[in-house]
Write a protein that binds this DNA or RNA. Sequence first.
DNA 1: CCACAAATGATAGTAAAGCTATCAAAAAAG
DNA 2: CTTTTTTGATAGCTTTACTATCATTTGTGG
Lengths: 224, 224
Amino acid sequence: MLSASVKISLDHKSYLREPESTTLGRKIIAESIRLIDALGFEQFTFKKLAAEIGSTEASVYRYFENKHKLLVYLVSWYWAWLHYTVTFQLQNLPSPTDRLNRAIEVVARAGQADDPSVAHIDERILHRVIVAESSKVYHTKEVDSENKEGFFLELKRFCHYLALIVLEINPGYPYPHALISTTLEAAHQQLFFAQHLPSLTDVAAEQYTETVNFLKQMVFASIK
Amino acid sequence: MLSASVKISLDHKSYLREPESTTLGRKIIAESIRLIDALGFEQFTFKKLAAEIGSTEASVYRYFENKHKLLVYLVSWYWAWLHYTVTFQLQNLPSPTDRLNRAIEVVARAGQADDPSVAHIDERILHRVIVAESSKVYHTKEVDSENKEGFFLELKRFCHYLALIVLEINPGYPYPHALISTTLEAAHQQLFFAQHLPSLTDVAAEQYTETVNFLKQMVFASIK
DNA sequence: CCACAAATGATAGTAAAGCTATCAAAAAAG
DNA sequence: CTTTTTTGATAGCTTTACTATCATTTGTGG
């Protein structure tokens, strides 16, 4: 597949300085993804990140107030990227059922992304980070104020986009947003459980394929 | 309802010293629930907890290695308590469909618990803590080793217990554990979204009732 | 009720995390 | 080529997350 370089831009300022616009900023993003994946978010620090990219703590702090805001940035970027990818994959699919089926596939298989659409971001590693860490962005005491600042817009927009497809299939279904947000979370959870807590799931060997099947069955059974 | 005092006991050692067995231990549990609820897990520290209960940091560290293990203890206690409550509520319900319906109600309405079954633990506050913080217990780099130590047994056991009811209703349903783990997580998520990120859900005014209805519809549609 | 063990409190101290400030050097923009 | 912006280098401060020691209190078994 041919894909021109895509610029994903966000609607809010989880950052102090636009990281995409400088070499150092891009290094911060690229290396933070790798380092959070390697250490886990709790053990990840700006000091370690700075060492990794041959810069200093102070310089990293010029881009992000703290590591939480950096995670907000990464998670928002991920949802914007996934939204873009899904939109692209749904082109020329007129049937809403086909569209929802394809959307579920793309969402659940995001970890298999073969198509690096952005030069310095490794979407497969980012996906692992999202699976393990994304729920931490809103499970904080600051969730309401950060929500007002627009920090979760990308997820909310994507959820609404998919909810509208659900309503196209069945305008009378009463819980389109709840079903989609549950499905989006479950797509991550089931992969995480398959790897770490297998007795919480039934998907195992072919984890992507089985997650897709489970989610499709659940979603379509619910809305029909 | 008449309920004798119940002792919930756990199968693993997230603690160093059994907190239920001493006055200080029970104060640590009771006050940590209140403080985590008030400050959020990130801002919660053993120093603040010790100040709150008129003790010292060192004393708290004699009960729990660190605040993460304390959270593991609280979350495990919650699942064991909920399992007990559900088992109790399913007595004399022979029909698996009735049993599953009732189980979903109890799970989704755990935050309305009117029945303080354990003297020093406020289950309603604990429920808020669980909704906001519980996923942090396994989203760590230590998940595999802690899983081996049995830290997640209570959740896994409860999930399996409900999965067996699903299989009673439809022995051919292929994803009983995935469906139940998704439902358990969704029960928390939807309440959290209703309060903090309402555009990710459709449940609003009557959040408990609507969450119950959404989950029942999803579960029974999936397995029938 | 005494002796002894266990639990707690008081205090101190350490390493790392999570910042903020300052100033000089380098790079980029006009 | 000068001026603004960005980065690096260094320093320092507060808080968190512990660990250690010793005295005191509490609780228990004889």
